[in-house]
């Protein structure tokens, strides 16, 4: 059970770190200053969540300190889904990912508020409140752009279609899944996926866009088992460019 829990926390932390990294790339180039600020805020929250999760692994589960965990693992040791690894692309893809990912993230924390592992439950109760704002931001912009111009509507529809198989990949099942469910720690990815599908489908429909088929065969899996897209390695190389100059130095 300890190992299954570790696995789950690592998945959550790596998702947050890598998507936080991507969101931070919008600093200075957003479609308007207000969106620069929004993505920068969300990046801070996500990187902060990653730090809190690595800290739990370090303090309660015997793992190395957060800086080592976050920055110094090999690519195949990361457990993020491939969805978060994709480059930011244009704002349409970034927004589609933000919408699809953050709903799934919020549901995951909601499913953990009564987790018997108290440090995680405690964090879930706190983070849930922050993520409500992320989701509010995503829903508002999705709705506005879906109802905006012909171009914005077409772009958002295309972006959701493109992102969809990757989004389904968020719910990849690992060996940890059944163990956590049996122990009553976390109800599992199948449950999360079904809740997510009903939430995002109703918002997408409401906005006047079409929900792609939730075809499991098309889901892009691999990340949870250490098989990543071509984009993760360069991201990690960039992230560790400075610290690798001298990993023993204090920065």
């Amino acid at each position: 059970m300890q190992n299954a829990l570790k696995e789950l926390i690592l998945q959550m932390a790596d998702d947050a770190l890598v998507l936080g990294h991507r969101n931070s790339e919008w600093t200075g180039i957003g479609p308007m200053l207000e969106e620069d600020l929004a993505f920068s805020s969300m990046a801070q929250d996500k990187i902060g969540h990653a730090l809190a999760l690595y800290t739990i692994l370090h303090e309660h589960m015997g793992e190395p300190d957060p800086d080592k965990l976050g920055f110094m693992r090999k690519e195949e040791e990361y457990r993020c889904c491939q969805f978060v690894e994709l480059p930011i692309g244009e704002y349409d893809f970034t927004l589609a990912r933000h919408f699809l990912y953050d709903h799934a993230e919020l549901i995951r924390y909601e499913m953990l508020v009564n987790c018997p592992f108290e440090p995680l439950a405690q964090m879930a109760r706190k983070v849930r409140g922050e993520l409500k704002y992320h989701v509010l931001h995503a829903d508002t912009f999705l709705r506005e752009l879906a109802r905006g111009t012909e171009e914005s509507k077409a772009r958002m529809q295309a972006a959701i279609r493109y992102a969809w198989p990757y989004a389904l990949g968020m719910f990849e099942i690992t060996d940890a899944d059944a163990q956590l469910a049996a122990a009553g720690a976390y109800a599992g990815e199948k449950e999360r996926r079904s809740r997510w599908l009903s939430t995002v489908s109703s918002i997408i429909n409401d906005a006047g866009l079409q929900v792609p088929e939730p075809d499991e065969a098309k889901a892009i899996y691999g990340g949870r088992k250490g098989y990543h897209s071509e984009y993760l390695k360069p991201l990690l190389d960039e992230m560790t460019e400075v610290v690798r100059l001298d990993p023993t130095a204090e920065w």
């Binding site: 200075g28 200053l33 990046a43 990187i47 902060g48 400075v242």
Partner: peptide, 26 residues
């Protein structure tokens, strides 16, 4: 340099700082 900051502390500080600058612009 946000994406390249060498640890969590520096990364979070830099991102918040640069965000402030954009906020000053606004």
């Amino acid at each position: 340099w946000i994406t390249r900051a060498p640890n969590f502390r520096r990364k979070l500080a830099l991102i918040a700082k640069v965000q402030d600058e954009i906020g000053h612009g606004q």
